[in-house]
Amino acid sequence: MAAVLDSVRAYFAPSVFTIDTENPGDVVARENLLDRVMGPSRRRKSSERIRRGRLPAEGLALVARDRDNHVIGTVRLWNIEAGVNADATPINALLLGPLAVETLFEGKGVGSALMRAAVLEAKNRGHGAILLVGDAPYYERFGFFAEKAQHLVMPGPFERSRFLALELVEGWLDGAAGMIIPSGRLLASAAVRRAA
Rank of each mutant, 00 (worst) to 15 (best):
D6L: 13
D6N: 06
S7F: 02
S7A: 10
S7W: 02
R9I: 04
F12I: 09
F12A: 14
S15M: 08
F17V: 00
N23M: 09
N23F: 12
N23S: 12
G25W: 04
D26P: 09
V27A: 15
V28S: 12
A29Q: 08
A29N: 06
E31A: 10
E31I: 10
N32D: 11
L33S: 10
L34R: 15
D35A: 14
D35H: 12
G39W: 01
P40S: 13
R44A: 14
K45Q: 11
S46M: 14
S46P: 11
S47H: 03
E48D: 13
I50M: 07
I50G: 05
I50A: 04
R52Y: 09
G53M: 09
G53W: 08
G53D: 08
R54M: 12
A57H: 09
G59S: 06
A61Y: 00
L62T: 04
L62I: 11
R65G: 06
D66N: 15
D66P: 11
D66L: 10
R67P: 10
D68R: 14
D68S: 15
N69K: 14
N69F: 10
H70N: 15
H70P: 05
I72E: 05
I72A: 07
T74G: 13
T74I: 15
V75Y: 07
R76T: 14
L77I: 08
L77C: 12
W78S: 03
I80V: 12
E81Q: 15
E81W: 13
A82D: 00
V84N: 03
N85P: 02
N85G: 02
D87P: 02
A88T: 15
P90T: 02
L94N: 01
L94M: 00
L95D: 00
G97A: 08
P98F: 09
P98W: 09
A100E: 00
V101H: 02
E106V: 04
K108Y: 13
K108I: 07
G109Y: 09
G109F: 10
G109D: 09
G111Y: 07
S112K: 13
S112R: 13
A113P: 03
L114Y: 04
M115W: 02
M115C: 03
M115H: 03
R116T: 09
A118W: 05
V119Y: 01
V119I: 15
L120A: 12
L120E: 10
A122L: 10
A122K: 08
K123L: 11
K123S: 15
R125H: 05
G126D: 02
H127A: 05
H127K: 07
G128S: 02
A129G: 00
A129P: 00
L132K: 08
V133Q: 06
V133R: 03
G134C: 03
P137D: 01
P137A: 00
Y138P: 02
Y139D: 01
R141M: 03
F142V: 05
